[in-house]
Design a protein around this nucleic acid. Structure first.
Lengths: 231, 231
DNA sequence: CCCTGTGAATTAGTTCACAGCC
DNA sequence: GGCTGTGAACTAATTCACAGGG
């Protein structure tokens, strides 16, 4: 989050920022930002602020983005192709080492400038390129099987776009991206906006989903309107 | 999160779950789950647990997923097409009301069974369909302009896949999806795995990024290894 | 004098532990 | 007897507020 804000400043050639400014850009309290950064080291200058470029580098390094991460994308449908074309990867140290698809007809087709390879080659590709991160954008039915092969071939981190829960052995990380979750969050806020005819509430881009003031004790079938929760 | 776990149970026709079981499936503590659910009402039965279908419905309703949300997708490249084809939307109450692209050559082309419409029609489509949620999957350069038109036409929630920060008036929600963030998180854990030659650490799919034990006081140029933070 | 870095104070979130109900 | 619902206890996160350096 901080890195994204800093990258923006960097692009606009801003040389330094104060915790106050950067916190505003990132949408957090400045004390929180200073405390967060203090865990990385003392990279600021009292009376001045933080050097943007230096901080970008330090955060990138801490996040492991200064090294080269070869990744493979398995499942080159629309989503796989979109990911292969996604500009944000390269600038973060991610290199698309290979695109893999089970469809023999796809083999050889260039997507984002890289020829798609058949899944028979999966194990060889992983070991030849020393890939430790795999992206799964196959249909749900194929995901677990692909996952098992990736893991057996040595992949230890998996980004799963398929709508299935993957099971993996200990020591392997899986992160699941559900494209509808964000829409659900928007719909939730949207619903609350609509229900705000009564009180004179403030509408903004809050992230917390307020519901009810106290644990409540309703029961029985529904029908009523969402209420209000702590914070 | 709970809803996803419950949907899985529902598909396997499991009639009831205890807080313990559901908590395990969702990866949280059972007391937390019970407290969370208590904010929605008393939907469990002591000695038995929660009725899966009933709970699915109650949570869906609270999240606003039992109503129909027409959405438009603007920018029908690979990503837009992938989103249009994404199965997870329909099951959550999201209905793709229209696909919009600025390229006149795209107009009329069916994507996911829906004919792409030209962006000249944007305002009319929004108002005819009562759309309040828009998805932007255009290139970065077009995003702000599209956003402005959506907002002017009455859209009050925007899901932004373009790699830009959008500015919107008060009362409009924007959520940004950065596909590389999840990869960054994986890379971070991956880096930490690699750096674990020293201590006999436990590797698992932790979500928290541990860094250093105490605010620290290093300075000067880099070169050293990530350290360890609170929890 | 401005702005960082950080203990102390405060606020929020989680877990415990058990009364109460099925 | 088993499991929910929830105050109380505990743990974590955030913010305050200010000493101290540039």
């Amino acid at each position: 989050m901080y890195l994204r804000a800093l990258t923006g400043l960097s692009e606009r050639s801003v040389p330094t920022v104060s915790s106050e400014e950067l916190a505003a850009a990132a949408g957090v309290n400045s004390a929180k930002l200073r405390k967060d950064f203090s865990y990385l080291g003392s990279y600021g200058t009292r009376g001045v602020g933080y050097d943007v470029e230096y901080l970008v580098y330090q955060i990138s390094r801490e996040l492991g983005l200064t090294q080269d991460w070869p990744v493979v994308i398995v499942g080159i449908g629309n989503l796989g192709a979109a990911l292969a074309n996604y500009g944000g990867f390269a600038s973060r140290g991610f290199r698309v080492a290979a695109l893999i698809d089970a469809d023999p007809a796809m083999a050889g087709t260039p997507v984002a400038g890289i020829a798609v390879q058949h899944s028979d080659e999966l194990e060889k590709i992983i070991s030849d390129n020393g890939v430790s991160i795999g992206v799964i954008s196959t249909p749900a039915g194929a995901a677990q099987q692909v996952c098992d092969r990736l893991v057996a071939a040595g992949v230890t981190s998996i980004l799963n776009f398929a709508p299935t829960v993957l099971s993996v052995p200990d020591g392997v990380d899986v992160r699941k991206v559900d494209l509808s979750i964000e829409l659900q969050i928007l719909a939730f806020h949207e619903q609350r906006k609509a229900g705000e005819e009564a009180a004179g509430n403030n509408a903004e881009q809050a992230d917390a989903p307020p519901l009810r003031a106290t644990p409540a004790s309703r029961k029985g079938p529904d029908g009523d309107v969402p209420a209000v929760m702590p914070a």
